[in-house]
C-alpha cells in the first residue's frame, strides 16, 4: 500500500533523472560538434541513410496527404458558398504549414528514430560502445553527433520534398474530383501563399528532426538489459518522439505565428 503512494514520486524522480541525462548528453554532443570535420565521412553516410533513403516514403505519404486534403476540401465546398479554386489555397497552406513537416516527422520517427535507437542500443548491450571507448574514441562525437548533424541538414530538405509532392497530390486529386482547372488551382495556391508559411514549415522540420534523432540517440545510448532493453528503447523512442513532435508543433506555432 505504501509503495502505491510512493509510485508517483518515483516516476517524477525517474523522469527528472532522464531529463538530466538527456541534457548532459546533448551538452556533450554540442561540445563535440566542433570536431564535425573529423567525422565528415560519417556525417555524409548518415545524411544518405537518414535523408536519401527516406525520400521514397516521404514522397508516398506526402502525395497521399495532399490528395486527402484535396478530396476533403471538395467535400466541404459542395455547398457552393466557397469557390472551387480555393482548393489550391487550402492544400497549399495545409501542406506547407502543417502536413508536410508533421507527416514527415511521424514517418521518420518510425523509420529513423527506431533504427537509430536499435543500432546504438545494440552497440551498448554488445559492448561495442565500451570497445569504442577502449580504443580512445569518444562515442558521442563518433555515434551521436554525426547522426544529429545529418538530421539537422536532411530534415528540412525532406520537408521541401514533402511540400512539393503534397501539393502535387492535391493538384492531381483536385483535377480528378472537382470542377477545377490547373490554372485555377495554381491561382488558389498563389492567392494565400506567404513565404513565411514555407519557412515556418522548414523550421518545424528542423526542430522535429533534432527532437527525433536526439531522443533516439539518448534512448539507444542508455540502453540496458540485452535484447529486451533494445526493444524497450526502440518503443520508448517512438512514443516519446511522437509526444515531443505534437508538443513542439504547438510551441512553435504559439511562438512563431
Amino acid at each position: 500500500m505504501f509503495q502505491f503512494f510512493l509510485l508517483p514520486f518515483q516516476l517524477i524522480q525517474k523522469s527528472l533523472e532522464g531529463i538530466g541525462r538527456y541534457v548532459e548528453l546533448m551538452a556533450s554532443m554540442f561540445r563535440s560538434i566542433f570536431t564535425w570535420h573529423k567525422n565528415l565521412n560519417l556525417v555524409i553516410d548518415h545524411m544518405y541513410q537518414i535523408g536519401v533513403l527516406s525520400i521514397p516514403i516521404v514522397i508516398l505519404t506526402s502525395l497521399f496527404s495532399g490528395m486527402v486534403i484535396s478530396v476533403q476540401a471538395a467535400y466541404q465546398f459542395e455547398s457552393g458558398f466557397v469557390p472551387n479554386w480555393f482548393v489550391g489555397s487550402v492544400v497549399g497552406e495545409s501542406i506547407l504549414m502543417e502536413l508536410a513537416p508533421m507527416m514527415t516527422a511521424l514517418v521518420m520517427t518510425g523509420r529513423i528514430g527506431a533504427t537509430i535507437a536499435a543500432e546504438i542500443g545494440t552497440m551498448r548491450v554488445s559492448e561495442q560502445i565500451d570497445a569504442l571507448e577502449s580504443l580512445s574514441f569518444d562515442p558521442i562525437s563518433f555515434l551521436i553527433m554525426p547522426r544529429i548533424l545529418a538530421s539537422a541538414v536532411m530534415f528540412p530538405i525532406l520537408v521541401i520534398i514533402a511540400d512539393c509532392f503534397g501539393i502535387l497530390g492535391g493538384l492531381i486529386a483536385a483535377l480528378n474530383s472537382m470542377d477545377v482547372s490547373f490554372v485555377e488551382f495554381i491561382r488558389g495556391l498563389r492567392n494565400w501563399f506567404r513565404p513565411w508559411d514555407a519557412w515556418f514549415g522548414l523550421i518545424k522540420g528542423l526542430f522535429f528532426g533534432l527532437a527525433i534523432t536526439s531522443i533516439a540517440c539518448y534512448q539507444g545510448f542508455y540502453t540496458t538489459g540485452g535484447a529486451t532493453g533494445v526493444g524497450k528503447s526502440t518503443t520508448a523512442t517512438v512514443v516519446v518522439s511522437c509526444i515531443a513532435i505534437v508538443f513542439l508543433d504547438y510551441i512553435l506555432a504559439a511562438l512563431l505565428l
Binding site: S126, Q128, D130, A131
Partner: peptide
C-alpha cells in the same frame, strides 16, 4: 587507453 588493448567477452566487433 592508447597503451591498453582490451579484448571483450564476445569480441565487441563493430
Amino acid at each position: 587507453r592508447s597503451s591498453i588493448g582490451m579484448v571483450f567477452q564476445f569480441g565487441a566487433l563493430f
